[in-house]
Design a protein around this nucleic acid. Sequence first.
RNA 1: CGCAAUGUAGCUCAAUGGCAGAGCGUAAGACCGAUAAUCUUAAGACGAAAGUUCGAUUCUUUCCGUUGCGACCA
Length: 981
Amino acid sequence: MTEPLELKKTVNLPKTDFSQKANLGQAEPARLKKWTDAKLYEKIREARRGATKFILHDGPPYANSDIHIGTALNKILKDFIVKSRSMMGYDAPYVPGYDCHGLPIETHVEKKLAEKGKNKNDLPVATFRKICREHASKAMDGQTRDFSRLGILGEWENPYLTMSNEYESETARLFGRFLERGYVYKGLRPVYWCIHDQTALAEAEVEYKLHTSPSIYVKFPLLTDPAELDANLAGRRVSLVIWTTTPWTIPANLGIAVHPDYEYAAVEAGDEVLIVASELVGFVFVKCCLSAPDENGERHLPRILAKFKGSKLDRMRAKHPFIDRESLVMNGEHVTLGGEADAETEIDVSEARDKKETGKAGTGLVHTAPGHGHDDFVISKQYGLEVYCPVDNSGRFTSEVEHFAGENIFKANAQIVELMKENGSLLFSENYEHRYPHCWRCKKPVIFRATPQWFISMDVEAEKGEKISLRANALEQVEQVKWHPNWGEGRMGNMIKGRPDWCVSRQRSWGVPIPVFYCQACDEPVADTKIINHVADIFAKETADAWYNRPESELLPENFTCPKCNSRDFRKETDILDVWFDSGSSCVAVLETRDNLQFPADVYLEGGDQYRGWFNSSLMCGLAAHDTAPYKQVITHGWVVDGEGKQMHKSTGNAISPNEVVGKSGAEILRLWAAAVDYTQDIRCSDEILSRIVDAYRKFRNTLRYALGNLYGFNPETDAVQNPLLQYSHGRETSEIEKLLEVDRWALANLDEVTAKVLAGYETFDYQAVYQTLYNFVTVTLSARYFDIIKDRLYIYAPKSLERRSAQTALYEITDKLSRLLAPILAFTADEAFENLPHQKLASVHLAEFPVVSGADNSQLLTEWERIFSIRDEVLKALEEARNAKRIGSSLEAKVVLTADRETTRFLLPFYEDLRYIFIVSQVEVHEGDALGVEIRKADGEKCERCWNYSIHVGEYEKYPTVCERCSTALQQIEQSAAAS
RNA sequence: CGCAAUGUAGCUCAAUGGCAGAGCGUAAGACCGAUAAUCUUAAGACGAAAGUUCGAUUCUUUCCGUUGCGACCA
């Protein structure tokens, strides 16, 4: 007889290299390196070669600053898609991109230059562009480092750049395609203009400062018969009253805008009749001192002759106050009551908004000069008015302007006021202080002025079978696309319906030049697709910098002459393309130039701001190139806000930096957060939220660790117990007829159900459902129930016993499937767990495929066990009461005496032997009685030293006097195995 | 101000024209063989008002809060 074993050492305690402490700060970079060294991304591509493709096309983030929480979220969600589709068996490549051109980089570079005392204008454009290129490059590198740190797999060493030679070439070619199809036209459009620097300014380049302008109220005599408005007005002299702070735009007045829904009043003022908004009658009359005092010196409210909706004024005609020209009355929603709906400042929406609350000024009728205001321009387009701008580059009236030709506009203000005062059209004028846009460079007031621009028409029709416009085709395509969430379709449709023609030219330097020439002799524009393609060929070799490095002769085909006058002398267009055109062309420039991609993409995923941005510009580009949308489905996510739902601002101090979170807690935390929230709405992020996520992460990790620890000594190929629910553990010959224990079957049935839900979640991009399902499975099914119940069995029975092998078989299946299901989200941890599965052969979980759902009907099993667990809840409550009464401590000190009705007793009969394990007590008795009752008694017998259960048999065994009957058997088996080996 | 989205426990999410579920967190307790872990129990919510209805958290309207777009910036 051998020596008795040391009891403690015969207990099968968990053992694994999968550590409890994640130490993600170090572990993640190490794993990233491992992935890179093993060329994991390339291996995945290889493994999926030939499979159906699933293309997520990356919207390029702007390569200017560090990544923020929103871009991190965006990239993580994209990674969920790519990784999960890949695990579904698709070939899902990911080519990240960067948007490199644009104003913010120019601004940044210009400021840097200024710090060195240099001026942008002193440098050749080519040099300036070189610095911009370098800056973009540098910012991009930083972003690439941060994005890949998040565990996002893709072609990071070869992303697409909108400033690359190939891309710039394709962008130019696409412009040629628009041109070829007849969508492009040249027209006028008002932009901010600095008359001092003689340059166009972007909104971002103006600063608002207080400025004093003349505020004037002017009459426009109505030419249309006033009887059409109201019979009361028949035969009266009626005028419309407008208000403006820019008298110099009056010569350019072509119309008057009124709101169709507002009420307007025709009011008697002396022998004439004035029309202003009803609400503003009192204000205007007081302001302009129009109500004559009566004999007592009191002023009365004027007599209102008629009231009517603004829509009644639509298309009536008025006369310009001092030019022999008609002014058209138009209906516009932009008109406000007592707001600054004035030519120059109204375009700034936030400004106008502020004004509405504070100052009252105006008449409810808006002086409209299409060449000098944004809203004016838009409404004039609708009414077919000319974009009239009689002001030159230096801010002087052109020769066609009567009275003021050659005059500086600001100086002319006073003269114009004087002229109107003389001819009686001026009601009132005063000085008015307001916030007014100024040039950020020279700090002088800027104006709004129409300049020549390139447009893409939304309504010109081109061939597509029958003729169709971009707008109409876009609306058709929007219906074909699948939108998540589905209100996206309406939003996109509305946007397309309401949008004006696309102005694609910008008076800037850092972008793709509009590849058009002008004949020096006759000024004829040469906008020809063949020439553009010739230029694009040069771009393909040298980048678009060639446009600035080379003279016209080297950019044009040899011996090219002006088709109109045969001159050989040309000049280059100086405008560049809108950066939205750049990024929009990615559907061609990237999807069609990379071997592993294809047009259209399966999915685009961006923030909701991109309806108006990239989704839109991409759609236009896709339509120009192929008459179809460049995406089959579009997913949008909300904005990241703080814990209170407020927007994040660096200055407010509520911003969360992704890099900080990654450094402190790990990328996994950010990834898990992205999965846990409803990304279709505003997404909250705060320290509290993240700390909850950290807790959840720990739960996932500890659960995986426990499972892995108990798989010690298990080889699924030789040790598994046969069961139809098994996919990854093969099991022995069925002739051995060993069946899994019931609880283990129950756990696997649950796993099967979870697998189905999770796969459905991945399929529908519902990561929150994936998270909730898995988290619930881990916390409730596994940790609180299954693992707690099988702990005794795993620890106590002999290592090779059926009892332990049965549990291990289930555990293996659970851990394997759980790792795979978690992999797209917990990219690092799932991989680590997968790696620690004994006898697992794949190099990474990311090469694996998702598990399949067995299809077995386990509903009866699951229902029965739900009933068991509800009885268990009752038992646990009773145990807790006993504990509180200090009658027991550990539940193993207890014996449960259940009383139940006949049916329940019968139901419990087959589980009788298992109940003590399910309840985790030492003994259970069931008695038939009336209702369900639970009585807790002290367990019978003594505590077994080995398994801690109580048993009346402790002391019966000679060799091991301190153990129970189960342990005695287990110890015998362990001794036999030891002897055999 | 328009257009759109959204509002359920401290947090993240469910469900439903008929008792509002879960997990985490919190509190209390147990265990000391998942141990900076694990288990148990407990308390805790429909933004406000009106309407439709036998009955509304759910449908309608209004209000309030928040966010995005309306910006030629991305």
